[in-house]
Simulated scan of single mutants.
Amino acid sequence: MAYQNLISEVKEHILYLTINREKALNALNKDTLAELADVVAFANKTDEVRGVIITGAGEKAFVAGADIKEFADYNGKQGKELAKRGQEQVFDAIENATKPFIAAINGFALGGGLELAMACHMRIAADNARLGLPEVTLGLIPGYGGTQRLTQLVGKGKAIEMITTANMITAADALAFGLVNHVVPQADLISKAEEILNLVKQRAPLAVSAAIKSVIAAVNNHNGYATEIEAFGKCFETADFKEGVAAFVEKRKAIFKGK
């Protein structure tokens, strides 16, 4: 897949996605968001992809925010549409994806960059990473789901503090607050993400998707219990369930096919 602002490659069932605007600290402009929407859709519909790793080009930034110049002159209606379109096409699409997305945070994750990382199902931060939502310094608030997802991850009090002070936090603080899953040296960032996805790849793909859907339903108040019950029942109808049980009984490794 050829993009202007992304580098995208599938290797061993993992889609490696790099936001490639290093000179702009990988800021999210309209074109980059459109390309992200396209690649998320590709990942969802392609059986070859079992998981996705998103990172930023270079060693300074994962994504240092949105491209402010593009919306500096917007009115209220345009601003609302910007947030709605971005959330639906990119951020919500990642969160609701059928494959696990891991954000490999290799530097600054600010504003829309942190919102992108929070939309992913897991986050791994390099030990030099800095994270924050500085929108109030521009007279704005986070518009790509930041107020919602940060609250889900770190709780109301810490979310309000981070958003209203606009202060950046360290990777170590992000780990302590529950904002990231792991902190590793930058050189180990991608390999840690691969380690997790290589474990996920050994599991039943339809069950993995059902588990993600059920967890997301819980945090988004979409009747998570009912979603879990429905998804649990559907798992019994899959060939992978029969294979998993047979492998357990026969004391061998299961070979799942996502069917």
Rank of each mutant, 00 (worst) to 15 (best):
T151D: 06
N198C: 00
K253I: 10
I68T: 08
E9Q: 15
V200T: 02
L82T: 01
I169R: 03
K80P: 00
I94C: 10
K77H: 01
L28P: 07
M162P: 05
Q4Y: 02
I14P: 11
K60V: 14
L140M: 12
K99Y: 03
V200A: 14
E161G: 03
A41F: 04
I124M: 03
V63H: 09
E35F: 03
E250S: 12
A37P: 03
L116K: 03
A24Y: 02
A166Y: 06
D92T: 04
V52R: 13
G86E: 11
Y74R: 05
V39C: 06
F91P: 05
V154H: 08
K253S: 13
I68F: 13
R252I: 07
L114S: 05
K257F: 02
T165K: 01
D67E: 15
I169Q: 08
F232D: 05
K99S: 05
S8M: 06
K257T: 14
I19A: 14
L153H: 14
I196D: 01
P185M: 12
A66L: 14
V249F: 09
I196N: 01
I196F: 12
A24P: 01
G139Q: 00
V183A: 02
A226L: 10
L25D: 12
N198W: 07
F232M: 11
A217V: 06
A61C: 07
L153G: 02
E230Y: 08
L199R: 10
